[in-house]
Design a protein around this nucleic acid. Structure first.
Lengths: 149, 149
DNA sequence: TATTGACCTTCCCATGGTTGGAAGGCCTAT
DNA sequence: ATAGGCCTTCCAACCATGGGAAGGTCAATA
């Protein structure tokens, strides 16, 4: 099977297969007489493993560890579990950070009239030194027309 | 004010200030006779604006738009609101994706014994073709000891 | 005044994961 | 034989950031 067929069968692009080989994530594929890379079903299996792990957000370095454990038939499942738990913790942190951003932005968007007038609490918040959450986010009734800059 | 002082005052590193100038996000700073970049309070103000927007996860290209609106005193707040809403939508999507990953991984971790034995549903899931969520994730009582590869 | 140390300048390099393209060789079908 | 669709390698770009080298400048101190 050449690289294009392996790519289609595994869901990993030919570009990325070559990259993974170059960086040592996967062993160098065998070559045909004319220099084409040649892949077996086992190789495709491994590539699919990699793609699924990437889909779950594992970094390539982490996948490298997972692959070692995958190949090591005497591994302890605790090792794999530990890796996965570490990744879950990282995911949770990232999610929390993004949620913080989203909450702050939603607050600001809710307090923005969104009309033809120039006043905009979003820009105001970006502009001023109010780092805390207790800024006046409710649209003030008699809002001035040019509060910015 | 030289670049180090502007960096300290704005929270944007000197490296990044130069980068923002090079890429056109901010106008080129004035220079002293000896070639040092020179920053005003207004410049620092702008840099702080940029840092806060980055903290909220805006990409530099988005910040460029925000800066234009910030400088445009006749802008309509609806424009800013639209930008922010677009960013919120992107954040929500990213959060949902990460949560999907996290849920799947948590499921797998919960079904993994995490002991000295090699059997591990995490690897099994990565290895096999089960794309749907309805895979047997509960640890089976009489789990086999070498189900992999 | 000379030295020192902390700053500034530009330039290049690296990260991570992926995509794009160019130039040239190979394979297969018509 | 020719066309087109593969394959090969190499080089560059993305985004935002940090590291570091080589050389100039500034301010304070001995």
């Amino acid at each position: 099977m050449n690289i294009g067929q392996a790519a289609k069968a595994s869901g990993v692009s030919a570009k990325m297969i070559r990259y993974y080989e170059e960086t040592g994530l996967i062993p160098a594929a065998g070559r045909t007489a004319s220099g084409y890379r040649d892949y077996s079903d086992t190789d495709v299996h491994m590539l699919r493993f990699i793609r699924r792990a990437r889909d779950l957000g594992f970094a390539v370095a982490e996948i490298s560890e997972l692959l070692e454990l995958w190949r090591d038939e005497s591994r302890q499942s605790a090792e794999v579990k530990r890796l996965a738990q570490g990744h879950i913790a990282a995911l949770k942190k990232k999610i929390a950070d993004l949620q913080d951003m989203e909450h702050t932005l939603s607050m600001l968007v809710n307090s923005c009239q969104g009309d033809h007038r120039p006043h905009c609490p979003i820009l105001q918040r970006l502009e001023t030194d109010q780092e805390d959450e207790n800024l006046p986010i409710q649209p003030r009734p008699g809002a001035i027309s040019r509060p910015l800059l």
